[in-house]
Design a protein around this nucleic acid. Structure first.
Lengths: 224, 224
DNA sequence: GGACGCCATACTGTATGCAGTATGAAGCTG
DNA sequence: CAGCTTCATACTGCATACAGTATGGCGTCC
C-alpha cells in the first residue's frame, strides 16, 4: 500500500524511511509473485546486485521475511524460500478463519461510518479491476479489503497476526485465482461480506468470512 | 525449553546452533523478567559488552525481537523496549482467546495419548513449583502448558502465531502473578483445563481456556 | 569400475570501519 | 533572564573485509 518511492535500481534520491523495510517489501513481492520459486536458496551477493543494496540491509530484509515465515533460515546455508504444503495452507487458513471471524464481529461493533465507507471503496475498486480482468490489481485490492476489515476491528494485535499469516498465503492466493468460475465465486462472496459489514451484522459477516476462507482452501488446493 | 549451553559471558566453547538466536533468547529473558524496563533504548555497544558478542549478531537479535513485537524500531534511534498499554494487553488476550479456543478444540480431537500425558506431566511439574512458591519456574511451566496444548492441535501456523503473541505478554504475566488469591485462582483454572483435555471434551476445554484468558486480563490489568 | 576421501570454491556468518543524523549543552542575542 | 542558534558528541545505519564451513568435483585406491 505505501508507495515504493525508489522503484529504480539506483540509490534512491529522495528521503527513505527504512532501507531494509523497503528491500523486504520488494523481496516479498518477488516471492509472492512467483519470480523466486519455493525451495530456492537466496544467494545474498546475487540479490545484492539485483536490488542495488549492500549485504547488510539485504540480510536484515531476509531475516524479516523469515520472521514472517516466508523464508526458512538454515544454518550456514542462509535463507531458502519456504515451500508451502497443503497442510500449511489448511493450517494457515484455519487460523485466518479464527482471526477474521473475530475481526468481523469486532468490526461490526466498533467501526465508524468512515471506515465502512473505506472498505466499500476498496471493494468497488476491486470490482472495477475484476471487470477489467486485471489479476494483479484485483489480487492486491482483495488483500486490502481483508486487511481493512481486520483494521476496523481496532485490535492491533489482531491486525498484526492477520497480516503476518496472510503474507505467507499471498503466493498461493496469487497463483490460485485461475479459473473463471472460482474467481466469480470469490467475488460473489466478497459482495456478501461488504453487505454484511454495511448492515453491521457481526454474525452474518463472521459466517461469510468463515465460508469464504473455507472456499479459499478449496480454490488453492489444486495447485498443491 | 532448549538448554542454553553457553550461559557464561565468554565465547562459548562448544557447538552452537545459531548465535543471534541465542542472543535473542537472552535479550528476551532480560526484557520479560524486567531487567530492562519498557521505554528503554537498547544501546548496542553497551549490550555488546554485556552479552559478550559483536554488534552484528546483537543487531540481528534486536530485529528478531522487533519482529515479535517486543521492541519497537524507530529510525536513527534503534530499538526501544515496547511499553504495553492496557489496550495492548486486552487486544493480545482477545487474540490469544481466539487462538487457544481453536487450539483446544483441535487438540481434543487430534491429540494422542502421549501428547496428553506430556501436558499432564508439565502441569504436575507446574503444581510442584506452585507448592514450592517458585515463581520463575512456575511461570515458565505455565507458559509451557499453554504452548503444549496449542502444539497438540497439530496446527503449526497456530502454534507459531500463539508463540509470537504469547511472547509479548510474558513480561506482563511475569509481573502480574502477584497476589496469593489470584495465583490460586489461576492454578485452579489450570486444573480444569487439564481435566477437560484428558476427557477430550473440546467444548469444555475451549470454555475453560476462554474464561482463563478473560481472568488473566483482570489479573494483569492492575499493573497497567 | 565403483566408492571413498581430499581439495578447491563459493557462500554464509561475524567483526569492524565509516558516514549520517539526532541529541544535548553551551554560548549568544534580544 | 529567556529563548534561540550553533556546535560537539554519541549512537545508529550501512558498507566492506575476514573467517569458518558446507558443497561439488576430482583423483586415488580397492
Amino acid at each position: 500500500m505505501p508507495p515504493q518511492s525508489a522503484a529504480a535500481g539506483d540509490p534512491g534520491p529522495i528521503i527513505r524511511q527504512s532501507l531494509p523495510a523497503e528491500v523486504a517489501t520488494r523481496l516479498r513481492d518477488l516471492i509472492t509473485q512467483g519470480h523466486i520459486a519455493p525451495g530456492t536458496r537466496l544467494n545474498e551477493v546475487v540479490l545484492c546486485a539485483q536490488l542495488g543494496v549492500s549485504r547488510t540491509p539485504l540480510r536484515e530484509a531476509i531475516r524479516r521475511l523469515a520472521g514472517e515465515g516466508l523464508v526458512e533460515l538454515v544454518p550456514a546455508r542462509g535463507g531458502v524460500v519456504r515451500r508451502l504444503t497443503l497442510k500449511d495452507a489448511a493450517d494457515s487458513l484455519a487460523v485466518l478463519k479464527a482471526l477474521e471471524t473475530l475481526a468481523g464481529r469486532l468490526a461490526c461493533a466498533a467501526a465508524d461510518e468512515a471506515g465502512i465507507a473505506q472498505v466499500q471503496a476498496l471493494h468497488a475498486a476491486m470490482m472495477d479491476r475484476y471487470a477489467a480482468r486485471d489479476r494483479l490489481a484485483y489480487f492486491k485490492l482483495n488483500q486490502a479489503v481483508h486487511t481493512a476489515i481486520v483494521a476496523l476491528s481496532g485490535n492491533e494485535t489482531l491486525a498484526w497476526a492477520h497480516e503476518a499469516i496472510q503474507a505467507r498465503m499471498k503466493h498461493l492466493r496469487f497463483i490460485g485465482n485461475a479459473g473463471e468460475q472460482k474467481w466469480a465465486d470469490a467475488v460473489a462472496e466478497h459482495e456478501e461480506m461488504v453487505r454484511a459489514l454495511a448492515a453491521r451484522d457481526g454474525d452474518a459477516l463472521a459466517a461469510v468470512l468463515a465460508a469464504h476462507l473455507d472456499r479459499t482452501l478449496e480454490r488453492v488446493a489444486p495447485v498443491l
